[in-house]
Amino acid sequence: MNRTYILLGLILAVLLVLPLMLSKYMLGIFIMMYYYAYLGQSWNVLTGYTGHISLGHALYVGIGAYTSVFLAQRYGLSPWIGMFAGGVLASLIGLFLGFLGFRFGLRGVYFVILTIAFAEITRLIVSHIDALGSFTGIFLDFNPSFKNFQFKGNIPYYYISLGFMVMSLIVVRILETSKAGRFMVAIREDEEAAKALGVNTFKYNMFAIAVSAFMTSLGGCFYANYIFYLHPNTMFGMSLNIELILRPIVGGLGTLFGPVVGSFILTPLSEVSRAYFAKGGMEGLHLVIYGIITILVVLFMPKGIIVYLKKWLKPILSKE
């Protein structure tokens, strides 16, 4: 166990000094790695631990992004505060969705459809509200300052996104070892048995979706202030819904480091191949590669890459 912490500490130390030797382009790739690891982890809280599959988590990304940007542009509220307003709003909407899903016992595919419907409906609504930029989206003005959550160059974003990812790991680790986390796993493994033992499954399902939505929406605020442009189709759209869940699935669902491992593998691949194929006029081919990798992992490593990684690392980590 001690060795695990030492290894993690070493990795973190390397990641902390990395910006000194990386180009701006490479920094961008790392930021996306951390960002998607963070989103994947947030999604993992609900789907990985309680087993309720959400295919509409872009909803919370969008809510986080739009809420913080709207509050900043309209009322001059710092995104550092607006981000939490977005989190609360996302939690409330998640709780409403959860209420419908869990109270009426929607399972499997039906729960999935509910989550997609919520994301799509919100996308359409936002596309028609002028105050939110309707279907042309919102451009952010560039006013770099800490208060505005906007910075020159990529280095501050690098550290913020790394911080987000590390925080999410800490939160999920605490959750994993808590009573609530144990009950969430029990729900995933056998919801009815958990109920028969007296677990208030409704309460813990609602808890999971609220935490997951809150965390996801903070990521949305970060992303908005990193790319300076919001569009309903990219913030609430189906492609983000899918992007978001691929990494934890490939890395290892319901595990602490699965989303991180998945993101460290898939994100660079996606970014590099996207850039590479865009030059050759074959935009979109990177998605094909993505699809193939996901299929291969699901076929040959159904529990995710993390299981194999743990096996390889075992000899190093288990020694005294």
Partner: peptide
């Protein structure tokens, strides 16, 4: 509610065991 029934002193061992397999 089922939690109240367990608290009140009835326990239910479900059919087919229904354990939590990874625990």
């Amino acid at each position: 509610p089922s939690s109240g029934i367990v608290e009140g002193g009835i326990s239910h061992v479900p059919e087919g065991r229904q354990l939590f397999p990874t625990m």
